[in-house]
């Protein structure tokens, strides 16, 4: 159990480092999928198989597929080449230090918080989660539904090809209707 937790945690961190340092979009997306699956493994190790399954299905499955589609749709090779010049070590220093300081602050706060609970791998079943969700958390479920609907409408509006605003800039391209 512990070994699974620490190993997959390590994989998650390394894969995430791969995400933020990579230059190729496709590689980065794959790194991110690895990272998400590793976090799913962490969930299994912690004793939350339902969350782990959801993580794989929704995150690594659905959301990342969306990313892959978009990456395939756009021609990102010039960007990937430019990315090398954008990510100059000089520019890395400040933000990295800032993130490190923030991490230090978080860790210090964790230490101060004095959490001493130990997770012994006791399972939290989907049944318990479902009872909570459709009991006291019903309102949150409704809100999530509305949020998804809003996101659907927004995405289909913003993602239109023939946006009247950019017609001037894309004037020489074939004008398609709303896809």
């Amino acid at each position: 159990m512990e070994i699974a937790f620490y190993l997959s945690g390590l994989v998650a961190v390394l894969a995430t480092v791969g995400v933020i340092t990579g230059t190729s979009p496709v590689h980065a997306v794959v790194y991110l999928i690895v990272s998400l699956i590793a976090v799913a493994m962490v969930f299994f190790a912690l004793g939350a198989p339902f969350a782990g399954a959801l993580e794989i299905i929704v995150y690594a499955g659905a959301i990342m597929v969306l990313f892959v589609f978009v990456v395939m749709m756009l021609n990102l090779r010039p960007d990937a080449e430019r990315e090398l010049t954008w990510t100059h070590p000089r520019h890395w220093l400040g933000p990295s230090l800032l993130a490190l300081v923030l991490l230090g602050a978080l860790l210090a706060l964790l230490r101060q918080g004095g959490v001493s609970e130990v997770i012994d791998g006791e399972l939290l079943t989907a049944r318990a989660v479902g009872l909570t969700l459709f009991g006291p958390w019903l309102m949150v479920v409704e809100l999530a539904a509305i949020l998804l609907l809003a996101a659907l409408v927004t995405a289909s509006h913003v993602g239109r090809r023939s946006n009247p605003l950019n017609r001037k800039m894309t004037g020489n391209r074939k004008r398609g209707g709303t896809p």
Binding site: E2, F5, Y6, G9, A45, L110, E117, I119, D120
Partner: peptide
């Protein structure tokens, strides 16, 4: 098997 500390 003594579990994973929450802190970790």
């Amino acid at each position: 098997m003594n579990g994973i500390p929450m802190e970790h």
